[in-house]
Design a protein around this nucleic acid. Structure first.
Ligand SMILES: [Zn+2]
Ligand SMILES: [Zn+2]
Ligand SMILES: [Zn+2]
Ligand SMILES: [Zn+2]
Lengths: 167, 167
DNA sequence: TGGGGATTGATACAGTATAACATATCACCT
DNA sequence: AGGTGATATGTTATACTGTATCAATCCCCA
């Protein structure tokens, strides 16, 4: 299993592809990919980084007219439900899904695992599955019914571990 | 691998054992297990449940004299560093470690995996390891240096899945 | 045409966590 | 005893993250 997010790539094309896929998936699922939601998604696609809701709020507010928190959180909720972005629990932040091409929208077996750089906040996403998340056996043995999973690692990305390691 | 936390047990003895182990571990590591820290730890040991910092704050404040947030957060920081409790990222909450007997204080290979009941907040803790967290391979392949991990599942505990399942 | 669902705007507030500075305590050295 | 530094606690204020609520708007369609 490999992780997407750190390697060099055609990022402008990466954004265009993601937007196109989002349009088509929302259309298929009869979800409204409105301008407000698209704008928030674009902001998250700018870098492969986790951004807080208020970071997004600030960028949205650059254009003079004021934007309130609910606007951002509503867009984030929509994008999360649509499977276009993920919440990074460790950071109380959000990042665009990097594996849109690899799985379907409602694919419950999609168990994303994240590699989070504590220095630059870059996030890489690996495709985990239920057999390797270290929880399935324990849950089965104890009768626990798993509904959602969080698998995240924090550390230093390749770029940041070159330079000074200490925070 | 099994998970501790759901099964019936001698909970009073469970608390006493944990306190004793905490005393001895802090003494060995030359850490000060002060009354304030001990009190917060005792509160977290009361149930095998995740508690928010402000839940703890409220209980601490029951005795008339006022307690401020930093008091609680400092005690939580200490207990986290000492390995006596864990933070549950999914809930922005804290729970006492249930596997004190199984690993050493500074044991970096201790990769706890949590089963979190969304209804009663009971938390079970399973001992994961690096080979099953679904991240090690991806990290190695991309040159990412993992420092800390979060593995959490949310769902319904055995007791809560008996009754009504819907929230 | 007008009713109903989904979306957005706006205000206020709730919940989580930390910064900053003062004070207290204790071990240790002189 | 007195000074000194490390650690811990008290206190106030504030920053960061997320929701509740109600009004206004838009759009599709019976
Ligand atoms: Zn890209
Ligand atoms: Zn980095
Ligand atoms: Zn117990
Ligand atoms: Zn439960």
């Amino acid at each position: 299993m490999t992780a997407l997010g750190f390697e060099a790539h055609d990022h402008s094309g990466c954004i265009d592809d993601a937007l196109e896929r989002a349009e088509s998936r929302c259309h298929d699922a009869k979800l409204q990919f409105t301008p407000a939601r698209r704008r928030v998604y674009e902001i998250l696609l700018q870098g492969h980084q986790a951004m807080g809701a208020y970071d997004i709020l600030e960028i949205l507010g650059k254009g003079g007219h004021s934007v309130q928190p609910p606007t951002v959180y509503r867009a984030l909720d929509f994008l999360l439900r649509a499977g276009l972005i993920h919440r990074i629990e460790r950071l109380n932040a959000y990042a665009a899904c990097m594996l849109l091409a690899d799985h379907d929208a409602g694919d419950a077996s999609h168990v994303p695992a994240f590699l989070i750089c504590r220095q630059c906040r870059t996030v890489a996403e690996a495709e985990g599955d239920r057999s390797t998340d270290g929880l399935t056996d324990a849950a089965a043995a104890s009768g626990f019914v798993v509904e959602t999973r969080v698998v995240e690692a924090e550390g230093l990305c390749p770029a940041c571990s070159e330079g000074g390691d200490r925070p």
